[in-house]
Amino acid sequence: MTTRTDSPAGLGRRGALTLGAATLLGALPARGHAAAPLKVGAIFSTPIEEPWDHQIHVALVQAQKVHGIAYQWSEHVAAADFGRVMREYAEKGCALVVGDAFAAETIARRVARSYPKVAFAFGSGQGPVNPNFSVFDNWIHEPAYLSGMIAGKMTKSGVVGSVAAMDIPEVARLVNAFNLGARDARPDVKCKVTFIGSFFDPPKAKEAAVAQIEAGVDVIFAERFGVIEAAKERNILAISNMSDQSALAPDTVITGPVWDMWPTIDAVVKMVKAGVFTAQDLGSFSFMAKGGAKLAPFHAWEQKLPADVRKLVAQKQAEIIDGTFRVPVIETTPKSE
């Protein structure tokens, strides 16, 4: 486990070295001095490079600049250590603790109950718990559907693929949305699906991608890291996930669903500062209509993507945002064809 601190000025992802508790938290300001910044801790079960947790981290770094929070984070926290790290942040005086609790759902709620004056907001597959445990998730099935439409239009073999983490509802709904978009764009398309059984195993993801490519896939949804590398080496097209990953392979990556955690973090920080934070499901902040989900920029593909494909996607995106089209939430196991 690694714990790090970013200064309020907003250092890079690998910013300042870990500070001691006294340095991090400081003493309470003397009367008449400016109020101390809101102290926020984040607990990530994976390395910060993993896209899901990275998007939360990016939003918290932005909160440093916009809201002046004092931000410290711990990465690669094992489930067995999760409760201990939560308690450490609460005892250090963090008013808000954020992170992902998928591997520690029960213990996260139990610890939160012990600190009713601390606000907790965690990525979770379960519901919120009064008075102080809120939940969120990456509801990016809408841009995943749009990405699938692009894949359906761009495949020459008629076979698209997805390499994803594991068969859980949160992942299945993205793959299902991608496949649905591909089929709506090309009804005869075949969709292959592979789960690697891990949130972060780039070599295994690459291996699964190579197997799909050898089976005829020529456009692949890189739900996990490692897939884009295989796509680049085998000269096929890729759809990224969670963040804009065009820089990894500009000629390979067309676009992909992006999870923007800023609307969620912005709302939570404001609620905590105003003293009105309550346990709630924050999932709607991750929908396209609220700016929490979008397609990554096309970059060079702005010119290379056929005009009819860009028009089709733009029209469907407008329908999603104005509410005239709803992408189904399907969380059952996607079938591989």
Rank of each mutant, 00 (worst) to 15 (best):
R4D: 01
G15C: 11
L17T: 07
T18Q: 14
A21G: 11
A22V: 12
L24M: 14
P29I: 15
H33N: 12
V40Y: 05
T46W: 12
P51S: 06
V58P: 01
L60F: 06
V66A: 10
H67I: 06
H67A: 06
A70V: 08
Y71D: 11
M86F: 03
Y89M: 11
Y89D: 04
A90T: 04
E91C: 01
E91N: 08
G93M: 09
G99C: 07
D100T: 13
A112W: 03
V118N: 02
S124D: 04
G125K: 08
P128H: 07
V129E: 15
V129Q: 14
P143Q: 11
Y145Q: 10
I150P: 02
S157H: 01
S162T: 09
R173T: 12
L174F: 03
N176G: 04
F178D: 09
A182F: 01
A182S: 00
R183H: 07
P187I: 06
G197I: 14
F199E: 09
F200P: 03
P203F: 08
P203H: 05
K204M: 08
A208I: 06
V210H: 02
Q212N: 12
I213R: 07
V219Y: 00
E229F: 04
K232M: 03
I239C: 01
I239L: 07
S240G: 11
A249S: 03
P250A: 07
I254C: 10
G256T: 11
A274H: 01
F277I: 15
A279K: 08
F287G: 09
G292V: 12
A300W: 02
K316H: 06
I320R: 02
V327G: 02
V327L: 08
E331L: 14
T333G: 09
P334S: 02
